[in-house]
Nucleic acid binder design. Structure first.
Lengths: 204, 204
DNA sequence: AAGAAAAGTTGAACCAATTCTAAAATTGAG
DNA sequence: CTCAATTTTAGAATTGGTTCAACTTTTCTT
């Protein structure tokens, strides 16, 4: 099962991702030439294309790592949320946003988002859409949890609320990464303000 | 003022846009080679790059035409909206969505959106952001109009509501253009459902 | 352990967007 | 009307992502 070939493959994968992460951060997505990634990973250009369908998929692999980490951190909030609808939403969304620039620069996010709309059927495009759905589900799960706790009315359309909140947050995040000078605290404040409308409709 | 050069320039602009529109629809954005656009517009490659910074900007010019048309059609709804908050929103959003595929295919939208996030500072990137803002403002204007008509509470945060509704709609539209098999009626129904949450919070 | 099959690697060649530069066209001053 | 300045054009050269056919390495079979 775990022969030489398997180990070499895993090692090359890691080397490519490490090289790409470093170069994307240093030189930006466009600036990181495939040739340079190949050289730094000590692998040929052809090998990179054997592992990833295109340059975007390399970035995609990095984005997936990041978003999965965020989803994981979010689980704790869903399990025991603050005892106030507005704060609960703000805490969960805060985790998403505060983690977002840990590994990925704004430029990398812009590229990743662009590729996911440009090529929705590529491996990365599909993975990105799936990640968005996971985030939406997590927000819906938080709403459901708040219903259990008696903080949210039980007659509301939970899935629709989850989508509404996620879509708004995501769009705000897109605008945020599009402007280099945009700051995280302002982003969070703007989303809080918008979410107040929703909280007014669903809170008890 | 309107010498030969001016007229020739306007004419070349038109020919390039016409050729690009036709070829983008026929062959898709990637499939429409600059060389082919140049040939069909009876202009050289160099000339195209003299008029537009890059291929994306040509698409951008076409998108702007489309969105401006939609904004125009929306004004009528804002002026005299249906006498019901949910219907008013649905009517305005319906205009946006129903017009959206008149000139632009889903593939063209995908490319346009991708470019606008990828290069937010390019001429097209900035224009696209400005158009989004116009649409947000128009939704806010509708809310304000509904307040005047006594259909929406006067103590709500109008701008935040406008952003929330636009952001949600826009994100839904992005997902819509990403899936070729997605249909307009379903998109509208999903947005209506989400907007019910907001309507519950702001209606009288 | 040898040989064949399978899997993976390599890098030169390809393709299309973009840049660059010399030539052509238009304009306005005298 | 003429010509120098300015703008515009043409298309060859450059660039960088992607493909592909030949080569290597690993695994499997006996």
């Amino acid at each position: 099962m775990s022969g030489l070939r398997e180990r070499q493959k895993a090692d090359r994968h890691r080397r490519i991702i490490d090289a790409a992460t470093a170069l994307f951060r240093e030189a930006g997505y466009e600036g990181a030439k495939i040739e340079a990634i190949a050289a730094q990973a000590e692998v040929s250009i052809g090998t990179i294309y054997n592992y990833y369908q295109n340059k975007g998929d390399i970035l995609g692999a990095i984005v997936s790592l990041e978003v999965n980490e965020v989803l994981n951190a979010g689980r704790a909030v869903v399990a025991s949320p603050p005892a106030n609808v507005g704060d609960a939403l703000d805490t969960l969304i805060g985790i998403y946003i505060e983690h977002s620039l840990n590994y990925l620069s704004k430029e990398m996010w812009r590229q990743a988002m662009a590729i996911s709309t440009q090529l929705p059927d590529s491996p990365f495009g599909q993975a990105y859409t799936a990640l968005d759905r996971e985030l939406t589900k997590q927000i819906s799960a938080l709403i459901a949890r708040l219903q259990e706790l008696g903080l949210v009315r039980s007659d509301i359309d939970g899935p629709a609320v989850g989508e509404l909140i996620f879509n708004n947050m995501n769009m705000m995040f897109i605008e945020f990464v599009k402007r280099d000078e945009a700051k995280i605290p302002e982003l969070r404040a703007a989303i809080r303000r918008q979410n107040r409308i929703v909280v007014a409709a669903i809170g008890m």
